[in-house]
């Protein structure tokens, strides 16, 4: 009872703070100076129609690199946390996880039809990141969703983890190399003007941003696929027995 009262009090106090916040919030009438500068500079200097992608992949691209590093560490961390489980299960046999039920025909046929379409959609999202809503992270997540569908349709399928980790590493190294190239021939680390900016709004434009988008999409897609794969029980026991 006291516990519940304490919870109600805590949530009510949070609510009070939030209500105050919402009640006194005045909608902004114009952009702040920094935002205004970004909106002016991204189309003019970087040639990217999507200001947000311009910020993410050029002005704040170093943050994006750090973010991808976080994803990589999570893939490694989830593997570390769940790999010990496989070994433990092996040392105490008897309660082996029951084999997954085969997917129904609808799911299997649906997966066969949808996985290529989802992959094409992901490529579209990644390649249009500098022109309209989209980009590497979003496209990578869409790739990972097609991997989930694939695994749902065929629970026994084993992902080629070596291929995924090599592809991911190569994409990461190329990302950094593009950044270093920016230091040599353009204004600084991860400057997109290592390639010609091109005609504004064209498919091949905005310098290195599409290249960075592709690398980011490949990297995020591989990392998320590895994370998804780590959560599958039967594979971690196999890994433990190797």
């Amino acid at each position: 009872m006291i516990r519940r009262a304490a919870i109600v009090l805590a949530v009510a106090l949070f609510g009070l703070v939030f209500a105050n916040l919402a009640a006194h919030y005045a909608e902004r009438q114009s952009l702040l100076p920094l935002a205004k500068r970004y909106v002016e500079l991204v189309p003019r200097d970087l040639g990217a129609a999507n200001v947000i992608t311009g910020i993410l992949l050029t002005y704040r691209a170093f943050d994006t690199l750090g973010e991808v590093a976080v994803l990589f560490m999570v893939a490694a961390g989830v593997g570390l946390v769940l790999a010990a489980r496989g070994r433990r299960n092996e040392s105490s046999p008897g309660e082996a996880p029951e084999p997954p039920r085969p997917a129904s025909e609808i799911v299997q046929t649906g997966a066969q039809m949808l996985v290529p379409l989802i992959a094409i959609f992901a490529a579209y999202i990644i390649m249009n990141g500098h022109l309209s809503a989209g980009g590497g992270f979003q496209g990578g997540a869409v790739i990972a969703s097609s991997v989930i569908l694939l695994l749902l349709a065929d629970p026994h399928r084993r992902l080629d983890l070596d291929f995924l980790s090599y592809t991911e590493s190569v994409a990461g190294v190329l990302f950094v190399l593009v950044g270093v190239a920016g230091m040599i021939v353009a204004g600084g680390f991860l400057d997109n003007r290592v390639l010609p900016v091109g005609q504004f709004g064209a498919f091949f434009s905005a310098g290195a941003i599409p290249v960075l988008s592709i690398l980011l999409g490949i990297k995020v897609g591989c990392e998320l696929s590895v994370i998804i794969d780590r959560f599958r029980p039967e594979l971690s026991t196999e890994r433990g027995s190797q």
Binding site: E27, R28, L31, A35, V51, I52, L131
Partner: peptide, 29 residues
């Protein structure tokens, strides 16, 4: 920003009027 639109330049939002009509891109990023 009041009456703003997504900070993506296309036919509906040309580059010249973007600073007056686009929403803040930094929170989105």
């Amino acid at each position: 920003v009041a009456n703003g639109t997504a900070p993506i330049m296309d036919r509906a939002l040309n580059v010249a009027e973007a600073p007056a009509r686009a929403v803040d891109p930094i929170p989105s990023a």
